[in-house]
Amino acid sequence: MRENNKKAFNLKNFLKQYLFFIITLVLLGIFFIFKFDAGLKATNVIIYSFKEMLLVLPPIFILIGLLDVWISKETMIKLMGEGSGLKGILLAFLIGTVAAGPLYAGFPVAMILMKKHVKFFNIIIFIGAWSTTKIPMLLYEMSALGFKFALIRLALNIFVIIIIAYVMEILIKKDEVSVIYKKAEDF
């Protein structure tokens, strides 16, 4: 009886977790019914993105795990926490810029940085750099849209990322930040 309850609970949990994915799969099915070509094309993209995800995520999560275990909160605070100043900002830019991967892969990294009490300002810098100033992307951009275009965009974005971080720091209250930092502790 108890076993059954546990199973039912697990199934319910599973369904709840995967509800979003199940809905998108139903939509994909609808695509196939009404426009087979579009469904096929969507499936191709999904397989491509899935492969990209499997290629990109493992080393990122391994590094996150290692960072969590080996680098103490105190060290990270010294490097990128309150009072880390310019060094913290540069490090946030550096980590975001050299890493490869889509925007969504940056969020778990941001979480581990929050767990280690990296300053919120530097977290936003990191997300900005991760989304926009990536070196591999820069090479593509130069070949597709020109050297000048890519260079100007990069230079402007360095300012834009800092502006976003400043504005976010003003708009998000300290106690709100501490709530999400507490959430990150559960990692």
Partner: peptide, 13 residues
């Protein structure tokens, strides 16, 4: 992530 990837696929179709 699986949900998001599927949405991306649908969108690009």
């Amino acid at each position: 992530l699986l949900g998001i990837i599927t949405v991306i696929g649908l969108m690009l179709a």
